[in-house]
Amino acid sequence: MAGQSDLNMSLFSPEEIEFMAEDELVEIVPNLRMDSLNFICGDYGPFHPQLAAQVPLWLAVALKKRGKCTIRPPQWMSTESLAQVLELERDSHAFQPLPFHYLEISRLLFDHAREDIPDMYMVRSLIEDIRDVRFHKVETNLEKFTASTVTWKNMSAMEVNIIRAFAGRALQAFYKHDNEQQAPDTDRMLDKQPQIPADRPKHNLKPR
């Protein structure tokens, strides 16, 4: 799958990431009676008033806009759990486990279902703080990396997307320079073709 917004770089725009996040399931409490809905992505329903149901976020938002349901904010979006995550996030170097699309889901819920979220302003500022702390971590991690293996767990879709273009280029450059240094290709002299990056022996990335 590639982004549509940028043809030659295959990058995603934030809007495309948001679109993907709309497939995440949320719990809604409908206030209408409706038979089950059959979509390509699966069957949802039947819906009964006051009985909670799991639906994709895009469906929840569509129903919410028509006033047919209330959305139950996910467990991790409560002030207590967010405050806890923020504290852990500040204390440790690792990223705390949050949903892969936490920024997009929270943004969509803030936009469309603000009355369903208890302590909306508190939740919003907590998420902002978490995002800031996490992005600062991303930057300090980026500072450390070289062409060796890179393992960061629990990064979210949006965080990855922000650094995707930059980190891709940087890693390529690091790889190129490290390779050049390890194996200054002597076969270039013998080869009649001036450009031979393709048939240069590939070196595995070794952790240094």
């Binding site: 725009s13 934030p14 809007e15 920024l103 922000i162 650094i163 273009a165 930059f166 280029r169 940087a170």
Partner: peptide
Amino acid sequence: MYEAAQSSMAAFKKWRMG
């Protein structure tokens, strides 16, 4: 590299401001 980082950050900020 600099432009790649700047543009993706700007796109994100624009999205977040809504």
